[in-house]
């Protein structure tokens, strides 16, 4: 089930409260569908998708996580080695927005690596908005990350999340220099992203553009 050639393999995690639409965003992005009969995620799931950013192919290994606080013990074990983080809240759930900072802090606590992040306000299709666009923008600015409002239901701006994240990932990966890229090239196809590999290939340069 190989997805073919790629330039980089990148681990991305999706975080946010229970029920904000993390799984639906991923299903829309990876499988181009929206499931009305969706299911609560237990623990973690992952999906794989190749993202084209200009002339480069980035193979995303995207980890979908359970939002309930109690699962953090399990989900945190999957934080390590992540290059990209997608923080999701629901525009119609004020609490999920208030908790975003908690999620950001949980990342800052558990990883010292610089990561490319993006803040996503989902459920743009709903009439019952409880979080204003300006609030999302302000929060995103505070943590120096891009911000986007989406609807997984209507497939609105979903591709944009990954395009913007991909842009930043590409800039960062290219900054790392030839060494890492060459290394992965030689192993392309069978390369597995795991702890040890990540530690050796983790960029040391910071990612100001993220």
């Amino acid at each position: 089930m190989s997805l073919g050639y790629y330039d980089w393999l990148v681990k991305v995690i999706v975080l946010g409260d229970s029920g904000v639409g993390k799984t639906n965003i991923l299903t829309q992005f990876c499988d181009s569908k929206f499931s009305q009969n969706y299911t609560a995620t237990i623990g973690v799931d992952f999906k794989i998708k190749i993202l084209n950013v200009q002339d480069k192919k980035i193979k995303l290994q995207i980890w979908d996580t359970a939002g309930q606080e109690r699962f953090r013990n399990i989900t945190q074990t999957y934080y390590k080695g992540a290059y990209g983080i997608i923080f999701v809240y629901s525009l119609i759930d004020r609490n999920s927005f208030n908790n975003v900072e908690g999620w950001i802090k949980s990342i800052l606590e558990s990883t010292t690596d610089e990561v490319c992040s993006i803040l996503v306000g989902n459920k743009l299709d709903s009439q019952d908005r409880r979080v204003q666009t300006a609030e999302g923008e302000k929060l995103a600015q505070k943590y120096n990350m891009p911000f986007i409002e989406t609807s997984a239901l209507e497939n609105k701006n979903i591709q944009d999340i990954f395009d913007r994240l991909g842009q930043n990932l590409k800039i960062r990966l290219e900054n790392e220099g030839q060494k890492v890229s060459n290394n992965i090239h030689t192993q392309s196809g069978q390369f597995k992203l795991n702890q040890e590999v990540n530690q050796t290939e983790q960029p040391t340069s910071s990612c100001n553009s993220c």
Binding site: T39, I42, G43, V44, D45, F46, Q61, I74, T77, Y78, K192, L193, N194, Q195
Partner: peptide, 19 residues
């Protein structure tokens, strides 16, 4: 493989196989 060793065990345990 390292990435996948535990996540499906967790699902089986916490949903008693229903998931």
């Amino acid at each position: 493989s390292d990435i996948s060793d535990s996540f499906w065990l967790s699902k089986m345990i916490l949903s008693l196989f229903t998931y």
